[in-house]
Simulated assay, not measured.
Amino acid sequence: MNTARDLAIVALDAAPDRPVEQGDLSLALAGAEILDLVEAKALVLDGDRIRPSAQAPTGDRLLDEATGALVRQEPYESVEEWLWRRGRGLASAYVDDLERVGLTTRTRSGRLPVKSWRTELVDSAARRQATQRLAEGEPVLTALAAAAGLREEPGEQAVDDDHVTTVLAAVGDSVMELEAVRQRRQIEDAAFDNVWRGY
C-alpha cells in the first residue's frame, strides 16, 4: 500500500473543487512517506527519531529516493525535521511522478489567446483504490488528507499505533506552523503596503 501516492491522487482528484496549499500537501506527503517506509521496513521510528533500517528497494521511485535521503548518523533526524527537509517541493514531485507513470494526463484549459495546461487523473486502478480508501474512511489516509486541507475532519476511526500517531501529530503541528508563517507574511505585506501608500 502506497499512502503517499494515494494522497497525491486524492489531492489531484479534489483539486478542481477544493484547491490545496502546496506546502500543506508537501508536508503531508513527507509524513505519508515515513509511514510507507516503516511498512516497507526501510526505517524504524524510535520515539520521534527516524532510524534507517535495511535499504531494500521499495519498487517506487520516490520512496526509494526518500530511503536514500535518510540521515544515517546518530542522533538521526526527528520526524519534524524530516517533514521540513523532505517536504520541500514534494507535491510537485508527486504530480510529475504520477504523469511519468501514466496516471495523469495534461489537457489544455482556457480560451484564446491564453491557454494553459491542466493535469488530470486518468481512470485507473490506482485512482479507484485511493478514492475507495478515502471513501471508506481509512484512518491514516483520512488524517493525512485532513492535514493537507482536503477534508474538514480527520475521520471517525481512531489510530491505535504509536508510530502513526507520532507522525500524524508532527504533520499537524508542521501544517499549523506553516499557516502561522503565511499569516505573519500577510500581515507584514499589508503593513508594508500601508507604509508605501503613506498610511
Results as ranks from 00 to 15, higher is better:
Phe192Ser: 09
Ala56Gly: 03
Gly87Phe: 01
Asp97Ile: 00
Val114Trp: 13
Val175His: 08
Gln55Ile: 07
Thr105Gly: 06
Glu188Ala: 15
Trp82Gln: 02
Ile9Asn: 05
Leu43Gln: 03
Ala180Arg: 15
Val181Met: 10
Glu153Ala: 13
Trp82Lys: 03
Asp46Ser: 14
Leu83Gly: 02
Pro75Phe: 10
Val101Thr: 13
Asp193Cys: 03
Glu74Ile: 03
Leu29Val: 07
Gln55Met: 11
Ser109Ala: 14
Arg49Asn: 10
Asp160Ile: 13
Ala148Gln: 05
Ala66Lys: 07
Phe192Tyr: 11
Gly137Glu: 12
Arg72Lys: 13
Gln73His: 12
Gln132Arg: 15
Gly31Arg: 03
Leu121Thr: 06
Asn194His: 12
Tyr76Thr: 01
Pro57Arg: 14
Asp123Leu: 10
Ile187Tyr: 08
Arg49Ser: 11
Gly149Thr: 04
Arg151Ile: 01
Ser92Trp: 05
Ser78Arg: 15
Arg88Asn: 07
Arg128Glu: 15
Gly110Trp: 05
Thr119Tyr: 04
Leu178Gly: 09
Pro19Ile: 08
Trp117Gln: 15
Ala54Ser: 11
Ala28Asp: 01
Ala69Asp: 14
Trp117Tyr: 11
Glu80Tyr: 06
Leu90Trp: 09
Arg51Cys: 06
Arg111Asp: 11
Ser53Tyr: 12
Gln22Gly: 09
Thr3Pro: 00
Asn194Asp: 15
Met1Glu: 06
Ala190Trp: 08
Leu12Pro: 07
Tyr199Lys: 11
Thr67Ala: 12
